[in-house]
Design a protein around this nucleic acid. Structure first.
Lengths: 337, 337
DNA sequence: ATATGTTGTCGAAGCGCTTCGACAAGGTTT
DNA sequence: AAACCTTGTCGAAGCGCTTCGACAACATAT
């Protein structure tokens, strides 16, 4: 293991000079810099992370807490995680992967040990038990998701209320008057991971303004669950002509069942999905959808966090504007007799 | 920030005693231990990770390198990653998330800086450029996946050759004589991520023994790609009655297209999927499948790595035996005229 | 009784780095 | 020519921990 001191000796300078070459915190003459850099190359020197962390009191590590559960949006989570890792690297940070399993203890552990300089939390619940800890520490953090109270917190999320409203508007404009929302699994609502509720709220209130009736049904996803859910919907509201689906694993079952029942998409019923673009374009019908901008969320979270670490940038709630892409699954409501 | 020294003072012992209480590396009298533990509690002490790493030369961090690409098996990757993180914690290790993006440089960086004590690499290619580095260092590592040459390496993977063979056997036993393999996207083969090829090899050689003809077609996944692929298959081999699908995003399209063409599953054609159980049970037909044991792979990888870190356990290739679960998508081959 | 462990604790060194203050050498300003 | 910056470099302190050797205090073997 090559050390700073060895590099210094090899280059004929002092250890501190090498350190300053590395950090750029003091000016170094060109000649010296080059000699040092060359020594670093030749010796294959890598600064020791532990020593650096100890001396500088910064680990250059960001902790990312991902949900343990895999009952929803796994690809989205993965995409966010990868985006976070990738973007963090461009700022010189590495990412420590924490699972939700440890809960608040993980926050304490990481904060207390100086393992990470900052945290990003995913899958934030409305009244998340980790929030008091975050508020009570001076360690910067960013939430992906939106809790009930956001004072003192920095959050990034898709504007799900606007997403819901956007769906309502699109369907209303096409003449639909009775729409059904196929939501996330009941467990997601019980856990109060705000996004599902917020979508629904946005959709409901805009629908009310536009004179559209909304029926909401959570759904586990998968064919069997969807079969039951769909039957209930048509039972209760036979005139339903529009669907908004916020559950990746319900999309394909819904399309298959509609087909099976002889309801053509988009001639008889329209379907909007809230899902990543990839799902929307790979489905059996090219789906009109509101994209979940996973990469963008990861990127923004990192940027806000870096800003906080660098001292600028305070608390802020960054809601990304939803974008609805019209594809082949929505069309004018059928003319009723 | 509370330090060891403060705890020591509070408990009326020396710093080293506190350290030994924490590590258990020397015997401590019950009274002293309790006093120290109480002081730790009261002061809310957390050992500083950097100082610990510097002094002990171990970071208690495992690096996990996940593929950057998301063109395949994302849920599997995620599940493995989570399993790794969870299991690592139970052994007192945290997990550093590296993306494949940095490539071999990441290995160098992590190895050189002592950031992590060991690595787990996912998505290993047959002739992976990171392998020489791993062989050239004394840092323990485990691969998830199987490269072409495994000397000096520890690997965990599903036995994909046996998986292929198992599929062939199941279909042969049911009387199928012409089967098609819907493989991963062409890019996966081009990149030589061995598992796809190994499945195919296992399937082909067992099929030959059993007198079954095999037609292999890579497929991007999604409906459009599947439409083309399926048409080509029936064009070339109209008598195909068995399918093996090794691509999550091709499963549902295949089922839908078969249905659309009036080919009943499993009466007219049988379908076996190589996929996580969740996909198999949530599909529109409950699929006979060979499971991809993501959790188990993550767990095994961590265990092998910990064994190496603890000095016992050398290089080893752990191939998990595949298990085929018969569900509703396979049945006897139709009687030909 | 002496020699020989055992057990529990301490002090001190040192891990590899960052950073502060000092300061020589040279350049500017009066 | 004195006084003052600037620039580039160095030495030393210290970050918070682990770990080694030392050594009392007591127990056991001879």
């Amino acid at each position: 293991m090559v050390t700073l001191a060895e590099v210094a000796q090899h280059a004929g300078v002092s250890a501190s000079t090498v350190s300053y070459v590395l950090s750029g915190k003091r000016s170094i003459s060109v000649g010296t810099r080059q000699r040092v850099e060359q020594s670093i190359q030749q010796l294959g020197y890598h600064p020791n992370a532990g020593a650096r962390a100890l001396a500088s009191n910064r680990s250059n590590i960001i902790a990312l807490m991902v949900p343990l559960r895999t009952d929803m949006y796994v690809p989205v989570m993965m995409e966010i995680a990868i985006a976070v890792a990738t973007n963090a690297r461009t700022h010189g940070y590495d990412v420590l992967l924490l699972t939700g399993e440890e809960g608040p203890d993980a926050v304490r552990r990481v904060t207390g040990s100086g393992l990470a300089d900052a945290m990003i939390l995913m899958d934030v619940e409305l009244d998340d038990e980790r929030l008091p800890l975050l508020r009570g520490t001076d360690q910067p953090s960013v939430l992906i998701g939106l809790p009930a109270a956001t004072e003192g917190l920095t959050c990034v999320d898709l504007d799900f209320a606007a997403t819901g409203a956007l769906c309502a508007e699109h369907l209303a404009k096409l003449g639909h008057r009775d729409i059904a929302v196929i939501g996330e699994a009941p467990a997601v609502y019980e856990r109060h991971t705000g996004f599902a509720e917020r979508t629904l709220d946005g959709l409901r209130s805009r629908s009310r303004e536009l004179g559209v009736r909304v029926l909401h049904r959570p759904c586990e996803g998968g064919f069997d669950a969807m079969t039951v859910t769909l039957a209930r919907i048509f039972d209760e509201r036979p005139g339903t002509t529009g669907f908004v689906v916020q559950n990746e694993s319900a999309v394909e079952p819904l399309l298959a069942l509609l087909r099976q029942q002889g309801r053509a998409v988009p001639e008889d019923v329209s379907v909007i999905a809230v899902c990543p673009d990839q799902v929307a374009t790979q489905a059996s019908v090219r789906l009109t959808s509101v994209a979940i901008p996973a990469q963008e969320m990861g990127r923004r979270a990192v940027e806000l966090l870096i800003a906080k670490l660098d001292g600028h940038g305070g608390d802020e709630v960054a809601l990304l504007a939803p974008e609805l892409t019209v594809r082949a699954s929505t069309g004018p409501a059928p003319v009723t007799s």
